[in-house]
Design a protein around this nucleic acid. Sequence first.
DNA 1: ATAGTGACTCCAC
DNA 2: CGTGGAGCCACTA
Length: 130
Amino acid sequence: MGSTQPNFYHPEHQPVANSLSASEKIWFIVAMIPSGQVSAYGKIADLAGLPGRARYVSKALKMAPDSLQLPWHRVINSQGKISFKPDTTQFRDQLERLRVEGIEVHKGKIQMAKFEWRPDMATLVLQLPF
DNA sequence: ATAGTGACTCCAC
DNA sequence: CGTGGAGCCACTA
């Protein structure tokens, strides 16, 4: 006894083989949003196992490599609106991308009841690598 | 260490 | 509906 070796049988010492960074988890979830549907920053954070970090989701999207081709435009705020300021190219870009896939935006707002992504949690969890 | 800054949320008016 | 404010968290100067 008296060993200083970590006890890998203890719940808190489970081997972390597929540990993804917070950003990677966020990117993974965002990549799952189906075309024609949207989700909120806060929801993405929750699904990524990062409750309370909606603001971090926006940062993760900003730093995401272009090579990932993430459908970042499908992420809007909890009020059903685009979070960029209306007079920015980013706002116009997101608006255009949403409309291209059939998402209606009236007066800057999207009907969440009609376009919000509602994944079956039981199925979703099985697809997560974390 | 402190203060400011968001692609955020929630809630009270 | 619009606004304001508090709470939030990671990051930066």
